[in-house]
Design a protein around this nucleic acid. Structure first.
Lengths: 143, 143
DNA sequence: TATGAAATGCAATAGTC
DNA sequence: GACTATTGCATTTCATA
């Protein structure tokens, strides 16, 4: 194991589930649900953050209501070995929301939100330096 | 357009960016950044929620630190026309974290977190009723 | 639709078990 | 590691423009 083992009890899981549903849920309300005092819950949340179990507090946006109208998944097949260069591009490119090295069909899978075709095209141009790709446009988000 | 047009000004975008980075950021701090009063920011956030731009307040979890150790992307190729049945399965299955109807290679793309191989297998069995699939296991999450 | 002041109520801290 | 009580402060509400 990479990191030292983190032991989460069922109360921690309950707290995580609460915050997943509503990260602004009040300590008071959480503490009632999990049968602890508010300071105890706060201490557990702090620990979950410092151990990295909770990466960060965020919001989920309906991208279709912004002007990020193109959502797609790109499967990349490397044609050279410049993984470091690619990963640098991935990390810096703001249209790439998520990226995984995969085993199966292809080498990398990228989740992309682009405002328009031009922005998508620009990304694809850059990616083509590293390999070929398969572009899968999201027609509708089921879940 | 499906919904009535939502007009977001640059202040709304700023507020969204703040909350994306930290959904628990205090109104006081946001209001200083965007040069508005705290009640004005609260009203805008309420509006963003009620119009559905903000879907919900949540946390990002490091799944590798829980026991959801398998992350994968499944591309599904339908072999029948029971899309409704499949979508019902997708919505109810807790290992499926995200699902898109796609154009390109395949019909659906699913993002899955499973605790172990058994859980993944069980899902694959159910999916095979609807079509064939391509399984792409995430080796590492770059971003 | 925003502001500013007042009131409510939550969260953080300290002290204790 | 958790609880209680107190303090301080953020959020909310209301009145005003």
């Amino acid at each position: 194991m990479n990191d030292k083992t983190i032991n989460l009890d069922s109360t921690d899981i309950q707290i995580i589930d609460c915050l997943k549903m509503n990260s602004r849920m009040q300590l008071k309300d959480i503490s009632e649900l999990v049968h602890l005092s508010a300071p105890a819950v706060a201490a557990r949340i702090d620990k979950l953050e410092s151990t990295g179990v909770i990466k960060h507090f965020t919001i989920e946006i309906d991208e279709s209501k912004l002007n990020n109208s193109i959502q797609c998944f790109i499967i990349l097949f490397m044609k050279n070995l410049d993984h470091l260069g690619l990963q640098k591009l991935i990390k810096s490119h703001y249209t790439i929301k998520e990226a995984h090295k995969i085993s199966g069909h292809g080498c990398y899978l990228l989740k992309v939100h682009a405002k328009n075709q031009e922005e998508l095209n620009a990304l694809l141009d850059q990616l083509s330096l590293y390999g070929t790709y398969q572009l899968n446009i999201s027609i509708s988000k089921i879940k």
